[in-house]
Amino acid sequence: MISPQRVDATLLAALRISAGLAGVLLLIIFFFMAAESWAGLRDIGPLRFVLDASWHPEPAAANGSFRITAMVAATLAATAGAVVLATPLAIGAALFLRFYAPPGLAGPFKRIVELLAGVPSVVYGFWGLVVLVPLLATLGGPGQSLLAGILILTLMILPTITLLAHAALVSVPPAYLQAAAALGMSRWTTIRSVALPAARGGLFTGIVLGTGRAAGETMAVLMVCGNIVQLPDSLLAPVRTLTANIALEMAYALGDHRAALFVSGLVLMLLVTGLVLAVARLDASSGRFRHG
C-alpha cells in the first residue's frame, strides 16, 4: 500500500506539471511565432516591410515586394475609429446601468449587453455583410469599407467596455457616494466628480482591453472591409487589415511569404501583450478601489 504522503507528493507533482504547462504555453507560442518569422526577417529584412513598393509577396524574398504599411494603417484606422465610437457609448451605457436604470430595467439591459458580448465574431461579420454593407453601399462605393469595419468593431467592443466599466463603477465605495450626497451634490455632479474619477482605473482597463480586441479581431473585418490593400483615402474605401491579410493568404503562402505573415502575427501579438501588461500595471496602481 502506498502511503498517503507519497500520494500527496505525486499529486502535487502532477498539479505542478499541469500548471507549468499552462504557464509555459505562452512561451511556446512566442517561440514558434518567432521561429517561423525568423526566415522572413533574415531574407526580407525589417526595412522592406516599410520601403518596398507594394504588397506583392512571393515565396522567394527577392521576387516579391512586402510593404505592409497600408495594412498597418488600416488596422490602426479601424481600431481607432471603433474605440472612439464605442467608448462614450459604452461608458454611457454603464452609467445608465449603475445610476439611471429603473430597478426593473437594469437586469434585462445587463442581460442584453452580456448576450451582445457572447455573439461570435463570425456572426457579427455575417450580419455586417448582409445588412450593414448594402446600407453603406447606398452612400456610394462598394459598401465593404473601412466604415463598415469601424461600425462592426464598435458593436463588438461595446459590450466588453460596458461590462468592465460597470464593474468598475459598482466597486466605487458607497461611502464616497454618500459623502457626495451629504455635500448636497446633484446626481450628475456626483457622477462626474466622484464616481468617474474613482472608477477611472477600471474604465481605462476596459478601453485598453477593447482596443486589444479590436486590433486583433479577424473574422468580422475580413467579411466587411473589402480586403483591398490600399491606404484608405475615405471612410467608404475598402481596406485590408493585418489580421484579414493573414486569414486570406495563409492557406497558400509558402517560403518567405508565409514567414512575412508570421511576422505580422508576431507584431500583433507583441502589440496586444504590451496592452495587457499596461493594464496589469494600471490595475496594480488602482487596486485600492477593488475591495472598497
Binding site: M33, V272, T273
Partner: peptide
C-alpha cells in the same frame, strides 16, 4: 501572469501557432 497575457492574444495568432506547431 502568463495566462493573463494569453487571454489577450488574438485568435488569428493562435491559428498561426496551431498551423506551425
Amino acid at each position: 501572469r502568463s495566462l493573463d497575457v494569453l487571454a489577450g492574444v488574438p485568435s488569428i495568432v493562435f491559428g498561426l501557432f496551431g498551423n506551425a506547431f
